[in-house]
């Protein structure tokens, strides 16, 4: 009897004490200030800063010459000195990357629709596309120079060549991800093919499409830079190669920094477009 009374006495108390800490802030962890969104930004930045600081320290302590491995500070100084020049070199690289990407997008989506629509096309093309993925496509870059010369055309074409496969594969996955019963329903209500694409298949493919586009933009940039390595006319790829021939290590790193920033911006634009599209078409 006594025990039962004790228990029922305890029940509200323990419930109250269990509820009490909820509105109060949770106990601080070792990185107590870092929580939520801020943590996601601050932690990677700290990690990167540590690596750069370590790099700087190693170069200074070991007195590594600039021609072998420049310190981050030396790269930063060189970058500020040469920024207008490097930005000028960045223009063709950026434009050619964007051109490659846009062509890849149109070509990739069209090919995916073709493969999705026609059984014959799927059976004939899809195994080849998968097989093509396995080829080290960079190795084919010189061919494009032979065929298309050393101008923009060959660099853009090569960029398209290595970046459109992910778009095809991702878009096709999306277009064919539609539930069979839903397609049956579309047929049963008398919908024509173009409407099924516009209202069902394409919206369903949107999340997949963007995963392909994110790969495509990085591949397009790789394609263009490899093209610049070979054709050696202008652009950041050419700058890197030229600086290497002059043992200008700080200039190489400065060019790479500019390339990284451009890559991040282009990628960021796609991520933002994706966020907008997923708001509408996400599950």
């Amino acid at each position: 009897m006594n025990g039962i009374v004790k228990n029922s006495d305890l029940a509200p108390t323990s419930a109250a004490s269990a509820r009490a800490p909820l509105p109060a802030p949770s106990p601080p962890s070792r990185l107590g200030v870092l929580r939520g969104q801020a943590r996601l930004v601050v932690l990677p930045v700290i990690a990167a800063a540590l690596v750069i600081t370590g790099w700087e320290a190693v170069v200074r302590i070991k007195q590594i010459p600039n021609t072998l491995l420049p310190a981050p500070s030396a790269v930063a100084i060189r970058l500020t000195e040469t920024l207008p020049f490097l930005l000028g070199q960045a223009v063709p690289t950026t434009l050619e990357t964007i051109a490659s990407f846009l062509i890849s997008m149109v070509l990739g989506i069209s090919l995916a629709v073709l493969i999705c629509k026609s059984r014959l096309m799927r059976d004939a093309l899809y195994p080849n596309i998968v097989l093509f993925q396995l080829i080290p496509k960079i190795a084919l870059a010189p061919l494009f120079i032979v065929w298309l010369g050393i101008g923009s055309t060959s660099r853009i074409t090569f960029g398209v060549f290595i970046s459109f496969f992910p778009v095809v594969v991702a878009t096709l996955t999306g277009l064919t991800s539609v539930d069979r019963d839903l397609l049956r329903l579309c047929k049963a209500v008398g919908a024509d093919e173009s409407r099924i694409y516009a209202k069902v298949r394409f919206p369903a493919a949107v999340p997949h499409l963007f995963s392909g586009l994110k790969i495509a933009i990085t591949f397009a940039m790789i394609g263009v830079i490899v093209g610049e390595f070979i054709t050696a006319q202008a652009g950041l790829g050419y700058m890197i190669l030229f600086a290497a021939s002059q043992a200008e290590m700080t200039l190489i790193f400065a060019s790479i920094v500019v390339l990284c920033v451009i890559g991040l911006v282009l990628y960021g634009i796609i991520v933002m477009a994706e966020a907008l599209a997923l708001k509408k078409y996400g599950a």
Binding site: D181, L182, R184, L185, A188, G190, P203, A204, G282, A283
Partner: peptide
């Protein structure tokens, strides 16, 4: 075209 259909899954369009 005038058969109403229901399946095991609701097959609604999420968007």
């Amino acid at each position: 075209t005038d058969a109403g259909m229901m399946f095991q899954d609701p097959t609604l369009l999420p968007w």
